[in-house]
């Protein structure tokens, strides 16, 4: 039969192992009005015991793609549903000029493998918890994934020139005569680990599928900060200094493709800040720098929201195992 011939030409594996079941849904012949042949040929050779191979032609990987957009289908129902259309007599219709085939697989592959890939994460960061100063920053992260769920990486944030002080300090000073010491950041550099405990996929209007995951991130790094002189700005002037900082956060990553994703992350950068002293020393002591800061540093946490892109490199990757 022509269908068998096509199946052989297309290499649809008619030789199967013991108990393998090859199902060939190759296109039916034209003269028969679109009949479809199903070949359940079983052979026996190298013994892949128990495997069930279902071959729906050698078309692209559209249907079986790990994107998962088709994986939830009822295969038997589909086959049954397709039957009347295939058996439609239509003897006078012209020959088909082209066709497309799809493959489905019993187990879907992970949509975007991370293992041994590098992740670049440019983002913008905004403060969430400081009503006095919004510590906005541009950030760039670099992660190396040594498993599909675990990565080590660094991220760098540049704050200087992007921060915004709100009116609150001005209004508070004016109405209560209280100056609240605030800080300015220059940059932060952090080493961190990322772990992905949660992943899944979303359907939009039953039409599009988005893979996504949620991760936790944490690590240690440095921040270069300084107090902003608000109590005695005429005299005091502070230089940036290095602080040791810890960070912990959670994030959500939505894949647009196998190498590109958008992400949102809430991350708390915690460190000990040296704040400006609220008291002004009298006399010459006013000009002594050791009187400008408070006696003990204050625990400071800057909760930031990161919004940005994730770019996985290399763009292409290969699965270790066949489908």
């Amino acid at each position: 039969m022509l269908a068998m011939t096509i199946g052989l030409v297309l290499g649809t594996g008619t030789v199967a192992a013991a108990q393998d079941a090859d199902m060939d849904f190759g296109a039916g012949g034209d003269e028969g009005g679109g009949d479809a042949d199903m070949d359940f040929g079983a052979g026996g050779d190298e013994g892949g015991g128990g495997d069930a191979d279902m071959d729906f032609g050698d078309g692209g990987d559209t249907g079986g793609d790990a994107g998962g957009d088709d994986g939830g289908g009822d295969i038997i129902g589909d086959l049954a549903g397709a039957e009347p259309e295939i058996d439609d007599p239509g003897g006078d219709r012209p020959a088909r000029t082209s066709e497309a085939r799809e493959e489905i697989f019993a187990v879907q592959q992970i949509y975007a493998l991370r293992i041994n890939r590098v992740e670049l994460t440019p983002s913008a960061a905004f403060s969430l918890n400081d009503p006095f100063v919004s510590h906005n920053a541009l950030s760039l992260g670099l992660n190396y994934w040594w498993t599909n769920v675990l990565a080590i990486g660094v991220n760098f944030l540049w704050y200087e020139g992007l921060e915004q002080e709100s009116d609150l300090n001005f209004f508070t000073r004016r109405s209560t005569r209280l100056a609240v010491p605030v800080s300015a950041y220059q940059f932060g550099a952090h080493l961190g680990f990322t772990y992905v405990p949660i992943y899944g996929k979303f359907s939009m209007f039953n039409e599009f599928i988005f893979q996504w995951d949620s991760y936790i991130v944490g690590g240690v790094g440095i921040m270069r900060t300084r107090p902003v002189p608000v109590v005695d700005p005429e005299v005091r002037n502070f230089d940036y200094d290095i602080r040791v900082a810890f960070n912990l956060g959670i994030g959500l990553r939505v894949f647009v493709s196998r190498w590109l994703a958008v992400f949102g992350e809430i991350r708390n950068y915690m460190y000990l800040e040296q704040l400006e002293a609220l008291d002004v020393a009298l006399g010459d002591d006013r000009f002594q720098q050791d009187t400008w800061t408070q006696d003990s540093p204050a625990f400071t946490s800057n909760v930031s929201v990161h919004l940005g892109l994730t770019i996985f490199l290399p763009i292409d990757f290969e699965y270790n195992l066949p489908r």
């Binding site: 679109g34 589909d78 497309a100 039409e207």
Partner: peptide, 22 residues
Amino acid sequence: SVSAQDIQITGPLAGAPAVRRL
């Protein structure tokens, strides 16, 4: 002579929604 059968997408997933039994 136009016929819908000129182009036939075969395979069980042809025309299937992204998700079934949602």
